[in-house]
């Protein structure tokens, strides 16, 4: 059963067509790769799915509901609540908050207590805070950051910041996790660790993962299915081996022989 499907989704900025009639669908429980050369429209695709941009044509369906169609989107906040969460290509953590506080913000969207109970520090707000902190600590453990829980996220090393972003996104309890270049700037060892983390997230939490990545070893080693974009258009789709052998993909990355 498909969890997310794009149907001829198009985004046009003035004269530039960033995403052109892209259609694909994700099955539950897959680790799915979205690749393509720079400027192919990968991140724009993410912004479309998470509601930051509205499509100018086509539609996006998630979990049986249309979340975006031409000129209209449910908006990032509702989409997050429905169960899609993401990380960002250029890390967007809350720099002056600690690691655990970052993750707690992720868990906030399902809060039950109102602002009033927080302003008067009523027991139910305090209890919820403790609950979210504990849940957050578990997630930090899952990505191996529980020992730096109280460090300001700005002061964490780069690789840890990337993993913290994953933990924060997971705190929203998504059904679909979008990772935008999660391995960028990591050394080979960190990349291997990250692959393990992503795999264990899928296995433990039954999450579906869609990721953008430039490191081919990472993508080929981790993803079960790969979708290739170039100039906003779909050029290939399939298993890693198929995509790797596809002449169109090779041409997109290396240029064509003349």
């Amino acid at each position: 059963m498909s969890l997310l499907s794009l149907d001829k989704a198009t985004i046009q900025f003035g004269g530039l067509i960033a995403v052109n009639q892209v259609s694909f669908s994700l099955d539950k429980g897959d680790i799915f790769g979205l690749i393509g050369p720079n400027g192919a429209g990968k991140t724009t695709c993410f912004n479309l799915i998470t509601g930051i941009y509205e499509p100018t044509g086509g539609s996006v369906t998630f979990d049986g509901k249309v979340i975006a169609k031409a000129g209209k989107s449910a908006g990032p906040e509702s989409i997050a609540k429905m169960g899609i969460c993401r990380t960002f290509q250029n890390i967007r953590l809350y720099g002056s908050l600690s690691a655990i506080e970052n993750v707690m913000v992720g868990g906030f969207l399902r809060h039950r207590t109102g602002l009033f109970s927080a302003l008067f520090d009523l027991k139910r707000a305090a209890d919820e805070t403790v609950e979210l902190r504990e849940a957050g600590m578990k997630l930090l453990q899952a990505v191996g950051l529980d020992d730096v829980a109280d460090v300001r996220s700005r002061d964490l090393p780069y690789g840890s910041q990337r993993r913290l972003e994953i933990a924060r996104a997971m705190a929203t309890q998504p059904k679909l996790l979008l990772l935008d270049e999660p391995a960028a700037g990591m050394n080979p060892q960190e990349k291997m660790d990250l692959m393990e983390v992503v795999r264990s997230i899928r296995d433990q939490f039954g999450m579906t993962v869609l990721l953008i990545e430039h490191d081919m070893r990472f993508v080929m080693g981790l993803c079960e299915k790969i979708f290739v974009l170039d100039h906003g258009e779909e050029i290939a789709f399939g298993l890693p081996e198929e995509v790797r052998a596809n002449p169109k993909v090779i041409a997109a990355y290396l240029g064509e022989a003349h």
Binding site: K81, R92, G106
Partner: peptide, 14 residues
């Protein structure tokens, strides 16, 4: 505080 730090990330976190 999250709204102060980063609005885009905050709305993506719901």
């Amino acid at each position: 505080l999250a709204v102060r730090e980063d609005e885009v990330a905050s709305s993506a976190m719901g």
